[in-house]
Design a protein around this nucleic acid. Sequence first.
DNA 1: GGTTGAATTGAACGGGTGTTCAGATAATCT
DNA 2: AGATTATCTGAACACCCGTTCAATTCAACC
Lengths: 196, 196
Amino acid sequence: MARTQGSHAETTGPRVRAAALKLFARHGYAAVSMRQIAAEVGVQAGALYLYTPDKQTLLFELMRGHMEDLLADWTPVGGSPVAELETFARHHIRYHLDRPDLVFIAYMELRNLDPENFSVIEELRRAYENRLEGILRAGVERGHFAVPDTKLATLAIIAMLTGVTTWYREGGRLSREKVGDIYWDMVRKAVRAGHA
Amino acid sequence: MARTQGSHAETTGPRVRAAALKLFARHGYAAVSMRQIAAEVGVQAGALYLYTPDKQTLLFELMRGHMEDLLADWTPVGGSPVAELETFARHHIRYHLDRPDLVFIAYMELRNLDPENFSVIEELRRAYENRLEGILRAGVERGHFAVPDTKLATLAIIAMLTGVTTWYREGGRLSREKVGDIYWDMVRKAVRAGHA
DNA sequence: GGTTGAATTGAACGGGTGTTCAGATAATCT
DNA sequence: AGATTATCTGAACACCCGTTCAATTCAACC
């Protein structure tokens, strides 16, 4: 018996992606089977192939969408480097706290991407890093920041900020606002000039 | 035909662990089969069970050994918090650069641990974090550090320092010494007091 | 040189994998 | 009401999984 209650194409597609996202984040891409995803959606495994050509593409599209949204979430406007760095840090934290599963996947499942898919994601990731490095470089030129190496500082700051997703839980001791304040305080001090 | 060239028990054990480590780090625990590990060692899959009760224990023992070595690598001596923080940061970086595969596994494969194994590893990880937090708290009490939240600063610093393994490559632009200097500079400034 | 025993093979076990596809079903259109 | 078509099922395909174990091989000992 097929399709027991009406046409579902428009809702099933997103539900497949949502189920894959949830299960990939919880158990890892390799550990999740198409049959498990189908069960989560409430459908047989064969039906998934109406919505994705294969399992690999399901993972890739989740990661690509995430990276593109991340890049679209905010673009530098070229103002004061200090203000731009603050905006970057707060956006980064807020965006990552809003999408814990996608963030988790984007960092953990890189090695499960086919080589072509991997380079697409890597390029998007580099574009994001370059944005932060641009801010740091501008700040160093104008004397607002003092970092020994802008590339390294870029990676250190992103690692620090992204780390928030490993411990933050909704309704915990600290509000998002407060978390943003605390991290921004550390970032600002870490790159600050003139206080050696 | 078995054992084509002599008794191998003493060398095969470590070789099994080394092969598992390498393959788990490259492709992930769930994506690596016992037959692949056996092939890397140059043995049939059944022979692996002379050296591990099962695949899960192989992963767990790698992670447990790593965490115990990390804790044994250095213990705080109770001196100046600034000096202790520097020692901690430099040890952390050096240790992590020395064992990229183990570090990778310890962070990526937590969710593939059985619940009992998971809590063992989690406890070791918490013990490590508590060491750093102890340093920060001592520094805050004596007025050397100013951090809004020592627990959060602990996690932020560890995330930042551990991030070094994602980009550092042997023989690259920066020496280990220089990397340690740069990260220490950022950590020191991030927690510094009296320069708001 | 025959015996012992550790080290290993290779086949087997039950079950799970991603993917395909003919056929069934039900909502929509004429 | 009947035809059409998008949606989904369920079985099948070839293959891989972790693990067990009787049989085999060979170094060491008597």
